[in-house]
Design a protein around this nucleic acid. Sequence first.
DNA 1: CCGTTTAGCTTACAACTGTTCGCTCATTCT
DNA 2: AGAATGAGCGAACAGTTGTAAGCTAAACGG
Lengths: 206, 206
Amino acid sequence: MSRAEQKERTRRAIINAAFSQLSADKSFASLSLREVAREAGIAPTSFYRHFADMDELGLTLVDEAGLMLRQLMRQARQRIEKNGSVIRTSVETFMEFVTGNSNVFRLLLRERSGTSAAFRSAVAREIQHFVAELAEYLRKETTCPDELARAQAEAMVTLVFHTGADALDAPASQYAYLTSRTITQLRWLAHGAASYGRKPKEQGPL
Amino acid sequence: MSRAEQKERTRRAIINAAFSQLSADKSFASLSLREVAREAGIAPTSFYRHFADMDELGLTLVDEAGLMLRQLMRQARQRIEKNGSVIRTSVETFMEFVTGNSNVFRLLLRERSGTSAAFRSAVAREIQHFVAELAEYLRKETTCPDELARAQAEAMVTLVFHTGADALDAPASQYAYLTSRTITQLRWLAHGAASYGRKPKEQGPL
DNA sequence: CCGTTTAGCTTACAACTGTTCGCTCATTCT
DNA sequence: AGAATGAGCGAACAGTTGTAAGCTAAACGG
């Protein structure tokens, strides 16, 4: 086996070990270099042949997680073309991602407000992809001015993302409810932005 | 000094030490019993005279943070009565809380998706107070049916809460923008729910 | 084919961590 | 006054952590 090939192989072993140790009760911050190395089948010190420190590993994990998110978006687009309902399809696709890759989603969720500024901005960047893409769609499909399209997209992504977080702790029987509730909330946003967007002045008690 | 009084005093010293060590780069999980004890001015072993372990301390901190949140709600209500605009006043009050007690807010934000199920549900409970109170207000002020009022309140709290999270990493110059954007988003929700709530069927590409 | 490169190893160290045990001594209770 | 309680302490233990130094051996480049 080629040398570079073997190196890449144990690099992947490290990454996979790290992902597999993430769970509901174990965040990236609570991983230890030694434990990861153990599961990857290498000596602790060999870790340094691949990453300068745990932070570098963490940023790699965030990048990979972001990659999965983008694949998800592509998949959602395909389903939308067949299905028609943008909101319903998007929310359902996202919920499937959350429940099917809960550890990956947890990584993004936690590091978004974690203790490393580098991690936080890396996650924020990945989420911005979502927002930008959705905002562009809204600009095309509606008559929304640019700035409002972005604000609307931000709100939608925030709602979907954090309903996903709720789903992590909810029993599976709640998924359907959470999904349909989120769909309703996004429709409210879309509807409100469409009819209210051009007169954002205060009126009434709200 | 009375014995009970002295005990309460060092208990507070522990709690204060813990709060003061929380920061952008230090989460509760990364606090150490010994460091907290050091700052509180007691021996590490004396910690156990007040808390069974760090988790018990953590739950206490979450409770105190929840208390501050409720005081905040009370304060917001008073300001609303004078000011009139519910949404604007609520958002502004909350943003003041976030920027003025950022470590307290960070605790709630992080433990909401942290590694301890007990912490997660403790934080979730505190947030539910917000939601329940807002939902009741919506039921009174609007013609919304109960279930929709709750969904609307959940969406609003989620948006405000996580815009607060964004504010933590944003420069102070962005606060005004974040505040007004959130106000707009909440108005969209209110408006959309009011006019769209009674016919939640799919229509159009959204 | 021989010298260089390098992934991976073993050993070792210093710095923490949480927690147990037994003691002191001021406050409290009887 | 005398006994009991309990907050606080120091020493010690067993476990973990990250990381440095130096070696081996296999793949590589000339």
